[in-house]
Amino acid sequence: MIWFDASLERPADDGLLQSCIAAMLNFSTESVDVVHSISEIKDASVTCIVEAHSPHKYSQLITLYISEPLPRPDVPEAAAHLARTLDRALLLANDETANPYSFVRVSNTGQRSVVLVDPDELDENDRYVIQEPG
């Protein structure tokens, strides 16, 4: 079952993702699979699907799946831990609003703030470009 999606500020390799996700959940690295297609999912406790990335910020999308019998930690707290261990910011969907262009940016220190992304960039180019306030 999908736990959460995040777009990383800059790409992370499979080994780094595996070790940071394991640390976030206090699991062994052997319990975490990092794959690049849904067809590669096996029976690991945690699976991270990594979508291809471009050189642009927030272009690497990760989707975390947790096996059904395992507890699901609080997403904001887990995402803050993941951002700190990866040492990079990430974007999460903002579930507090129906606005599809509103996201929660979790900094590499774990601080959360609500940001808006450029609608045209997201809709036309599938890119998350944070709009500057004002």
Score class of each variant (00 low, 15 high):
Leu70Gly: 00
Leu92Arg: 02
Leu92Glu: 02
Asp33Ala: 15
Glu77Gly: 03
Leu91Glu: 03
Glu30Met: 10
Val34Ala: 08
Ala22Thr: 10
Ile66Leu: 15
Ala23Pro: 00
Thr47Gly: 03
His81Phe: 02
Ala80Phe: 02
Ser37Trp: 04
Ser28Ile: 05
His81Ala: 09
Leu86Met: 10
Cys48Val: 15
Gln60His: 08
Ile38Gly: 10
Leu70Asn: 03
Ser28Trp: 08
Arg84Pro: 00
Asp87Phe: 04
Leu64Ser: 07
His53Gln: 12
Ser28Arg: 15
Leu90Ser: 08
Asp43Gly: 12
Ala78Tyr: 03
Ile66Pro: 03
Val50Tyr: 13
Glu77Pro: 00
Ala89Thr: 03
Lys42Ser: 11
Ala83Asp: 00
Ser37Ala: 15
Asp87Trp: 02
Pro73Ala: 13
Ile49Asp: 07
Ile62Leu: 02
Arg72Ser: 09
Ala78Trp: 01
Ala93Ser: 12
Thr63Leu: 09
Cys20Trp: 06
Glu51Asp: 14
Val34Ser: 06
Ile38Thr: 11
Val50His: 14
Pro76Ser: 01
Tyr65His: 13
Glu68Gly: 05
Ser39Met: 08
Ala93Trp: 11
Ile66Ala: 13
Asn26Ala: 13
Leu91Arg: 09
His81Ser: 11
His56Asn: 08
Lys57Thr: 06
Phe27Ser: 12
Arg88Glu: 07
Glu30Tyr: 09
Val75Tyr: 03
Arg88Lys: 13
Ala22Leu: 07
Glu40Ser: 09
Ala23Asp: 14
Ser39Gln: 09
Tyr65Glu: 07
Thr63Arg: 15
Ala89Glu: 06
Phe27Ala: 13
Leu91His: 03
Leu25Thr: 11
Asp74Ala: 01
Leu90Arg: 12
Ala44Gly: 05
Glu68Pro: 02
Val75Asn: 02
Tyr65Phe: 15
Pro69Cys: 05
Glu68Ile: 06
Glu51Thr: 11
Leu90Val: 05
Val34Asn: 01
Ala23Glu: 15
Cys48Leu: 08
Ala83Glu: 00
Ala93Arg: 14
Pro76Thr: 01
Pro69Arg: 06
Pro69Asn: 04
His36Met: 07
Val75Pro: 03
Pro55Ala: 11
Leu90Met: 15
Ser54Lys: 08
Ala83Met: 01
Pro76Trp: 03
Ile66Lys: 13
His53Tyr: 13
Arg72Pro: 02
Ser54Glu: 11
Tyr58Cys: 01
Ala83Ile: 01
Leu82Pro: 04
Pro69Leu: 05
Pro71His: 05
Ala52Met: 11
Lys42Phe: 01
Val35Pro: 00
Leu64Gly: 04
Pro69Asp: 08
Ala52Lys: 13
Ile62Gln: 03
Thr47Tyr: 04
Lys42His: 10
Ala80Tyr: 02
Arg72Ala: 06
Ala89Ser: 15
Tyr65Pro: 00
Ser31Leu: 10
Ser39Glu: 12
Ile66His: 08
Ala52Leu: 11
Asn26Thr: 13
Ile41Trp: 00
Tyr65Asp: 05
Ser37Thr: 09
His56Phe: 08
Arg84Ala: 00
Met24Leu: 09
Leu61Gly: 07
Glu40Asn: 07
Ile21Val: 15
Leu91Gln: 01
Thr29Cys: 12
Leu61Thr: 10
Ile49Met: 11
His36Gly: 13
Gln60Phe: 07
Asp33Trp: 04
Ala80Gly: 06
Leu86Cys: 04
Val35Asp: 01
Lys57Arg: 11
Ala52Gln: 13
Ala80Ser: 14
